[in-house]
């Protein structure tokens, strides 16, 4: 058998849960009774490596549905959407969409958005580095230029307006976090994820700050972004919000 065909057959047998391909077993030199068991070592290795990658990236989703249910769903995902690149830190980005369409979990409509939040945290850990903008640097911008200033978000930043309270659900699974029973599942919530000083952080910004950040992400000038924010929240305080964003390192120094 040509090597390319052998490798295609191995792929099928290693990712598929069924009994191994008899033609593949026939290629193995070890005694016939041992062949399936020997091939199973590789199948276990592949599953273990890919499951571990998903376990690491989605700990809260796993806690929410239980390890057994998570493993069942993850194995279906692995068989349907195995990695396309040899870098496991980047494997799992398609799991949220998969969970959204996974019928057995349909009664947990917020689960996919919790998974999106966890993936954003994974992305934030590995995103490109950028120096944060300091208040002093911002202070050097001439006042006349401030309205037209276009501020960016740090490469690690992710802003998501969810119809579900995903920040509160996530927080309830952290040491010292809130109680899951106290979370009002009917409440929509925006979440901001970013990396500061090597650590991934997250919080739930208010409607004005969310609108401001969304406008920054669209490269709107500062005056326009502030107007959008004020329209969403009559009490929006631009200087207080900017001060906090600068202190948190959410805004990078312009390149």
């Amino acid at each position: 058998m040509r090597l390319a065909e052998l490798q295609a057959r191995m792929r099928q047998t290693l990712l598929d849960g069924g009994s191994p391909d008899p033609e593949l077993l026939a290629l193995i030199a070890d005694p016939p009774l041992q062949r399936e068991r020997r091939l199973a070592v590789y199948r276990n290795n592949v599953r273990h490596a890919l499951l571990s990658a998903l376990d690491t990236a989605f700990p809260v989703v796993r806690e929410l549905i239980g390890t057994d249910c998570f493993t069942t769903a993850a194995l279906v995902f692995i068989a349907q959407r195995p990695p396309r690149a040899p870098a496991l830190f980047a494997y799992g980005g398609e799991l949220p969409d998969f969970l959204a369409d996974f019928a057995p979990l349909a009664e947990l409509p917020w689960l996919a958005d919790v998974a999106r939040l966890e993936w954003a945290r994974n992305d934030a850990l590995f995103a490109a580095d950028r120096e944060p903008l300091s208040p002093n640097q911002l202070a050097t911008v001439p006042v006349a230029e401030l309205p037209g200033l276009r501020l960016e978000l740090h490469p690690s930043a992710w802003l998501h307006k969810s119809p579900w309270p995903i920040h509160a659900i996530w927080d309830a699974h952290q040491p010292g976090g809130g109680a899951l029973e106290a979370v009002d599942l009917a409440r929509a919530e925006a979440v901001l994820v970013w990396r500061q000083g090597g650590a991934v952080r997250q919080r739930s910004p208010g409607p004005g700050e969310s609108a401001l950040l969304a406008a920054f992400a669209l490269e709107c000038p500062l005056a326009e972004a502030a107007e959008t924010a004020a329209a969403r929240d009559p009490n929006f305080d631009l200087s207080a919000v900017l001060a906090r964003l600068l202190a948190d390192g959410v805004l990078p120094r312009p390149t």
């Binding site: 090597l3 191995m10 290693l14 290629l27 195995p82 396309r84 040899p86």
Partner: peptide, 16 residues
């Protein structure tokens, strides 16, 4: 580790 269709199997698989 990588199959002809570009799937990465995350293990060091044996060659004939």
């Amino acid at each position: 580790s990588t199959t002809p269709d570009g799937t990465f199997l995350a293990d060091l698989l044996p060659l004939p």
